[in-house]
């Protein structure tokens, strides 16, 4: 019982690491650009599929991670530049438009990669099991994922809090017009942040595809988890994305273990509580 509880905790934290990759990009692009991009889940799926093809062709998992992310930078830039920009700050229009984009991406991916569950091949040294104290075997890949999530989290946090670029982005989140008025090219900043968000989503697809597998519909499942992370943490907040990812990851793991038929329902709890006491999420503000 206790061992299972510990294992579920590791499951939850590794899912949290994956969700953080997706939610951090979502929340930062909302914070800075006020863009709600529902195609984020589709970026995840497409990045995963592209990484899968790269991994199969070259045999390199690292190349797959970078390639999947890089491909999504291009896709994301085009969609942002030619479609999302045209909606201004109308969130309703953005949501409908990006849902449409996600449908197109999902259907095209289905035509190319088919409807089966595909797993991104992880290299040998990442596979296999770790033997935990008490003779418990646990897949090593999950720890790799936690490591990846923590590494990205620390890097993002340093970038956001300790560099000049991060300071400019934070200033942009607070007051975009003012930043623009001081002579900083906010437009270029937007491109950089949305590129980063796209890269993280694509990379998350490859990383997630190696243990959750890739299949049509995965884009919505992962997106909803990321949305709950963002709702719980608060839109536009990096700390919120970290804490939110941990809460959602752990709740999901314990939910699946204790209430398998209602595991999705477990996610409802924190949102309902938040709505009663903190409608803006833990670290959110009014938008």
């Amino acid at each position: 019982m206790l061992t299972s509880a510990v294992l579920q905790a590791i499951n939850g934290i590794s899912l949290a690491a994956l969700l953080f990759l997706l939610a951090s990009g979502f929340t930062l692009s909302f914070g800075l650009m006020r863009v709600v991009n529902m195609a984020h889940g589709a970026y995840y799926l497409l990045g995963g599929y592209i990484g899968l093809t790269i991994a199969e062709k070259t045999g390199s998992f690292a190349l797959a991670l970078v390639g999947g992310g890089a491909a999504i930078i291009v896709v994301g830039y085009l969609i942002d530049r030619f479609l999302i920009r045209r909606t201004g700050e109308n969130h309703l229009a953005q949501v409908l438009l990006t849902v449409g984009v996600a449908f197109v991406i999902g259907d095209v991916a289905l035509a190319i990669w088919g409807g089966d569950n595909l797993m991104v091949p992880a290299p040998k040294f990442l596979k296999g099991a770790v033997i935990l104290p008490g003779d418990v075997y646990y897949p090593r890949y999950r720890f790799v994922l936690i490591f990846l999530g923590v590494a990205v989290g620390v890097a993002l946090w340093l970038l956001y809090k300790k560099t000049q670029l991060g300071a400019v982005v934070r200033a942009g989140v607070d007051d975009r017009e003012q930043v623009n008025a001081t002579g900083i090219n906010v437009d270029r900043l937007f491109v950089m942040v949305s590129g980063l968000a796209s890269f993280l989503a694509g990379m998350a697809g490859v990383a997630g595809g190696a243990f959750l597998t890739l299949y049509p519909g995965a884009e919505w499942e992962i997106l909803v988890y990321a949305l709950v992370v963002v709702i719980v943490g608060g839109l536009g907040s990096l700390e919120g994305a970290m804490i939110g990812a941990l809460i959602v990851g752990l709740l999901d793991a314990y939910g699946r273990w204790l209430l398998p038929e209602f595991s999705y329902f477990v996610l409802f709890g924190p949102i309902a509580l938040l709505m009663l006491f903190r409608p803006r999420g833990l670290f959110g503000r009014e938008y």
């Binding site: 909302f30 709600v36 969130h91 309703l92 949501v95 919505w220 909803v224 949305l227 709950v228 963002v230 709702i231 839109l235 999705y264 329902f265 996610l267 409802f268 949102i271 709505m275 409608p279 803006r280 999420g281 959110g284 938008y287």
Partner: peptide, 14 residues
């Protein structure tokens, strides 16, 4: 606004 949209998506998924 956005929170309402996102929360209703999550509800629907539940």
């Amino acid at each position: 606004g956005v929170y309402f949209i996102l929360i209703t998506i999550a509800f629907g998924y539940v």
